[in-house]
């Protein structure tokens, strides 16, 4: 019975997804300085790779895929295989132990593609920069098209950054 009750409530009350934030101006400016749009279209498939994150970025990425923010309704979706991806979303300072896996994952993504560094660690290593075990950001390994800062970035910020990426690809 609770199942029917819940489904009925959701139908009557409407969906829970909130209006998405506008495209992030800083992100748009950063993308404008980089490579021109590759015409990936209005829907982007994302492959998320954790390269040494504390899992804070993963929590907020989960929230961004959840009903309140709902990445999917913007045309963004997280895919299980790099072979299905248009963009890699990389978190963490890139641990030395994940570097080979990151390179192999990147090689498996069809070209053209985009690389997003998500979170402060993915930018420059964050508070782990300089240890023997990290490379100090995704840019040390792959060319990065967009950095979404924050520790961790909020779902709103993630959405706004990814919208800028989609605008560029239109």
């Amino acid at each position: 019975m609770p199942l029917n009750h819940l489904l009925f409530r959701n139908i009557v009350k409407g969906h829970r997804t909130e209006p998405a934030p506008a495209s992030d101006a800083h992100a748009a400016a950063e993308l404008a300085r980089g490579a021109p749009g590759a015409g990936l279209g209005r829907s982007l498939a994302l492959r998320v790779v954790d390269c040494g994150s504390c899992n804070g970025c993963e929590l907020e990425l989960h929230a961004a895929t959840g009903p309140a923010y709902d990445l999917d309704h913007l045309g963004l979706h997280v895919v299980a295989s790099p072979r299905h991806a248009d963009a890699l979303v990389v978190t963490g300072p890139v641990s030395a132990n994940m570097e080979p896996a990151l390179r192999r994952t990147a090689q498996a993504v069809p070209r053209p593609n985009r690389v997003v560094a998500l979170g402060d660690c993915a930018g420059d290593g964050g508070c782990f920069a300089g240890t023997y075990a990290v490379k100090g950001g995704v840019g040390q390994i792959l060319p990065v098209d967009l950095h979404i800062p924050g520790c961790p970035p909020t779902p709103t910020r993630i959405l706004a950054g990814l919208r800028a990426l989609m605008d560029r690809e239109r």
């Binding site: 132990n97 994940m98 075990a133």
Partner: peptide, 11 residues
């Protein structure tokens, strides 16, 4: 495991 070892003690 060990893939996300980032040297926390060193940091």
């Amino acid at each position: 495991l060990g893939y996300v070892h980032k040297g926390i003690s060193a940091a």
